[in-house]
């Protein structure tokens, strides 16, 4: 059935049929971001020169998602790997796909360093406010008062700091030619636009791009569908504003 759809052009070419249905939970934001990314890969025609790299965590389930050459790296080290790839093969279009743990915790120094250097890479981050895969521990993006397995009484801002504002901090570090934005899996057409701009910034302007998407994790939030959406659209969006934080002047 899936092959039929692909033949009829109803699935992206970049979408690897053999690994579908994918392994993400029902209601998981990863499936939506990756679907958007597949559409954009098709639109920009980067099947041959595209390389996809993912982190440890639920993002790792995307290691064989695309019909692209892909590599799963160590936790937080996805950005340096794509930086290395791009350094020696500037003709490639590289995407680092990470979670809030890999991007804002163990991998933060690499993300900031890459932004400062204006490495011509694209980093895509799924923010679901916790370390889903290892049993729901606190992440940099965990909201104040949110219960996780290492904040069983609720996250204390006093002890652990406030939720991490990734695109805000990265755009402060990045150069004028970077593209930095935050979108949401609940706004799909916008999500694709953001991904397209990010990749074009790499391909046409040889500059850095970083995009964060508010993503859903009903499994670890233990929420019913309506509450899941509410958490993303209300609680999370209140803390993490959806906007383009850095847009180079001539990027249409």
């Amino acid at each position: 059935m899936i092959f039929e759809l692909a033949d009829k052009g109803l699935r992206p070419k970049a979408w690897r049929s053999e690994t579908k249905p994918h392994r993400f939970c029902p209601g998981c934001g990863h499936g939506i971001i990756l679907k958007g990314l597949a559409d954009v890969i098709d639109e920009l025609g980067i099947h041959e020169l595209g390389v996809f790299a993912c982190d440890i965590g639920c993002s790792l389930l995307s290691w064989d998602f695309f019909n692209l050459d892909s590599v799963q790296t160590h936790h937080g080290r996805t950005v340096p790997v794509v930086v290395g790839l791009k350094k020696v093969r500037p003709d490639l279009t590289v995407v680092a796909y990470v979670g809030d743990g890999g991007g804002y915790s163990i991998g933060l120094q690499h993300l900031i360093s890459s932004a400062v250097r204006n490495d011509p890479v694209t980093v895509v981050l799924a923010n679901n406010t916790l370390y889903a895969m290892t049993g729901g521990q606190m992440a940099p993006t965990t909201l104040s008062g949110q219960k996780t397995s290492t904040t069983p009484y609720g996250r204390s801002i006093e002890e652990t700091g406030p939720p991490f504002m990734g695109p805000e901090i990265v755009s402060a570090a990045a150069s004028d030619s970077a593209y930095v934005a935050r979108g949401s899996v609940t706004r799909f057409p916008e999500l694709k636009q953001i991904l397209k701009k990010a990749l074009l910034n790499q391909m046409l302007r040889s500059s850095f791009s970083f995009v964060e998407f508010l993503s859903s994790c009903p499994t670890n939030w233990r929420t019913k569908p309506a509450d899941t959406l509410k958490f993303v659209n209300e609680d999370m969006a209140r803390t993490f504003p959806l906007k383009e934080h850095r847009v180079p002047k001539d990027l249409s």
Partner: peptide, 8 residues
């Protein structure tokens, strides 16, 4: 500490 299975 930092999360990593199996010592979480």
């Amino acid at each position: 500490g930092y999360p990593i299975t199996p010592q979480n």
